[in-house]
Simulated scan of single mutants.
Amino acid sequence: MSVGCLCIHGYTGSPKEVQPLVEFLENRTAWEISVPTLPGHGDDLDLRGHYYQEWIATTELALLELLKRNDQIMIIGFSMGGMIAAYLTAKYKVDRLVLLSAALKYVSLPQMYKDIFAMVLGATQGTLGSNELFLRYQKKLKQTYIFSTLEFIRCVHFTKPYLEDIRCPVLIIQGKLDGMVPSKAANFLEEEIPSTDKEVIFLAKSKHLICHGDDKDELFNHVLAFAKGLRHSE
């Protein structure tokens, strides 16, 4: 039995958002792992003219490729990628679903500004330039095409109804310090998903970029333990 794993990054993001988890799994499993870049996304954003249907289609094609070669599938979705992952899980009846900081509640550009402002206030003079989180969001804010945020909202609206069709085991992980997706979003996901096998874990030290947070080792181990339900997952 072979296992395929699809990992989906978030809005305005890139595979780097989930790369630490991907590397952890690559070092401990024999899975085929696919991490597509959504159209208009990546290290340099070019969102103008791209629509949420393209984002979903890109991940769906990656999933179909994994299905050709693997007997079991697990999907991991981060932020907006979590909602796309939920849609694909419902449509294709995959075996396991992991939702990381899933954006059932909206990410907002004003909240990004608030987070950056808080980092500025908290940073000591001369250290802000080396703050990776600050630099990442500063770049995003400069490059984000404002109207593409409507596509993000449409993506969430389109995928949300499919939550009620998920029956496979589900692992929901949320950072308690997440200022972009409220922590209560994890509880809403738990309520919306009817699967009888689901678990919600809150990480005390993690913000939105949960795979890069102070609790990342705990997150990685939870995901690997959750995957033990897959046959021959190691």
Score class of each variant (00 low, 15 high):
Met83Tyr: 01
Ile84Ser: 03
Ala86Gly: 07
Tyr87Phe: 04
Thr89Arg: 10
Ala90Gly: 08
Ala90His: 09
Tyr92Ser: 06
Lys93Val: 04
Lys93Asp: 11
Leu97Glu: 07
Val98Ile: 05
Leu100Trp: 07
Leu100Met: 03
Ser101Lys: 04
Lys105Pro: 00
Ser108Pro: 00
Leu109Ala: 14
Lys114Asn: 02
Asp115His: 05
Ala118Trp: 06
Val120Ala: 08
Val120Lys: 14
Gly122Arg: 12
Ala123Met: 04
Gln125Ile: 04
Gly126Cys: 12
Thr127Met: 11
Asn131Cys: 07
Phe134Pro: 03
Leu135Arg: 13
Leu135Glu: 14
Tyr137Ala: 12
Lys140Glu: 11
Lys140Gln: 08
Lys140His: 12
Gln143Leu: 12
Thr144Ser: 15
Thr144Gln: 06
Tyr145Cys: 11
Ile146Ser: 14
Thr149Trp: 03
Cys155Gln: 02
Val156Lys: 01
Phe158Ile: 08
Phe158Ser: 11
Phe158Glu: 12
Phe158Trp: 10
Lys160Met: 10
Lys160Asn: 05
Lys160Leu: 03
Pro161Lys: 15
Glu164Arg: 15
Glu164Lys: 15
Glu164Ser: 15
Arg167Asp: 03
Cys168Gln: 01
Cys168His: 01
Val170Ala: 03
Leu171Val: 01
Leu171Gln: 08
Ile172Ala: 01
Lys176Pro: 09
Met180Arg: 14
Val181Ser: 05
Ser183Asp: 05
Ala185Cys: 08
Glu191Asp: 15
Glu192Phe: 14
Glu192Gln: 11
Glu192Ala: 13
Pro194Trp: 07
Ser195Asp: 01
Glu199Tyr: 01
Val200Phe: 02
Ile201Pro: 03
Ile201Val: 14
Leu203Asp: 05
Ala204Ser: 08
Lys205His: 10
Lys205Gly: 12
Lys205Asp: 06
Ser206Cys: 06
His208Ala: 00
Ile210Leu: 08
Asp215Phe: 01
Asn221Ala: 14
